[in-house]
């Protein structure tokens, strides 16, 4: 089943959000308008707005209030992608040239900052200080997570805790905040709001671990990049951390990383093969599954409704994701 099918009952509301997202980034400046629209038109799962709307379904759901939050979260995510493409020197995103590739880094910086500003302007329609505190805290953590990712590149002395903290900041907190902000916008009971936040956090952790596993297990066609690309860039993810428990693997990796200036895919090929076959993938998937189980446990605290079923369906989908 496709992910969009799981939340198909939100179709009309998501169309409202989609329209509002596009309207929010309409600038008088043509290049800025074109650059901002490009990413949004290329599609995307809109998973953050989905979590916002589902969070709101446990309270006083009002599409206008939900819209302010959902649009802002999608825009914050979009702004971070524009800047990420500068950081990663990415040429393509969702099959289209990135903003930095089509124009240049400076345009990408201005576009990202513009989208970020529009997101905050838009969210200020929601006069709830706690919502802003949560989102602001999340954004700072998101940046710290990305800085940590650069700091930890090629560092074979990091441990699983470092990795988990990094993916929490990088991925899980924004998904958790999406669920929580949706709940806040709909005045959801605090106990349920907390359960939604925990659900988002656990699902986010599971999602990122699977993403990191897929970098080793999915085909180049499925990934849109060669297998092991994370490792080639020096990113040490969970399967590699498990593999490094073998001193032989660790010392081999360290010797390869010493030549990081001109590291080639061929040199990493034996290491990637080892990661694929030494049980690290299974161990990583097991950790991912433990997070998913916690996500289900959080859901158990919520009243039964269609949104709960949908959140369960999304968690299940994430757990089975293999591409």
């Amino acid at each position: 089943m496709k992910l969009a099918m799981i939340y198909s009952f939100l179709k009309n509301d998501l169309a409202v959000i989609e329209k509002a997202v596009n309207e929010t980034i309409q600038s008088d400046n043509m290049v800025l308008r074109e650059a901002s629209s490009q990413l949004l038109q290329a599609g995307g799962k809109r998973i953050r707005p989905v979590f916002v709307l589902l969070g709101g379904k446990f309270g006083d759901y009002n599409i206008e209030r939900m819209k302010a939050v959902a649009v802002s979260l999608e825009l914050i995510h979009t702004a971070s992608l524009v800047h990420d493409d500068v950081i990663d020197e990415a040429e393509l995103r969702r099959g289209e040239p990135t903003i930095k590739a089509r124009w240049d880094n400076r345009i990408a910086m201005y576009t990202g900052d513009y989208i970020f500003a529009r997101s905050l302007e838009n969210l200020s329609a929601l006069e709830n200080p706690r919502a802003h505190q949560i989102l602001a805290g999340t954004m700072v953590e998101l940046c710290l997570g990305e800085i940590e990712q650069i700091r930890d590149k090629y560092n074979t002395e990091q441990d699983i805790r470092t990795y988990l903290r990094r993916i929490k900041r990088k991925t899980a907190l924004l998904i958790a905040a999406s669920c929580r902000l949706g709940a806040i916008a709909a005045n959801v009971d605090p106990v349920h709001e907390r359960a939604l936040y925990q659900y988002g956090y656990y699902v986010g952790m599971s999602y990122q671990i699977i993403d990191d596993v897929l970098d080793f297990t999915a085909s180049e066609k499925e990934l849109g990049k060669p297998a092991g690309s994370d490792l080639l860039q020096g990113n040490i993810t969970l399967p590699v951390l498990f593999s490094m428990e073998d001193p032989g693997f660790k010392s081999h990796l360290e010797s390869v990383f010493q030549r990081k200036e001109d590291l080639h895919t061929d040199e990493l090929a034996p290491l990637i093969k080892t990661v694929q076959s030494n049980g690290s993938i299974e161990k990583s998937l097991d950790i991912s599954d433990r997070y998913l189980q916690k996500a289900y446990q959080s859901l158990a605290k919520l009243p039964a409704n269609r949104a709960k079923q949908t959140l369960k369906g999304i968690a299940k989908y994430i757990g089975k994701r293999r591409a």
Partner: peptide
């Protein structure tokens, strides 16, 4: 990332 971090801090402090 530094620019993004400083922007985040402004938002955080006012929030």
């Amino acid at each position: 990332l530094a620019g993004d971090y400083y922007s985040g801090l402004y938002y955080y402090l006012l929030s």
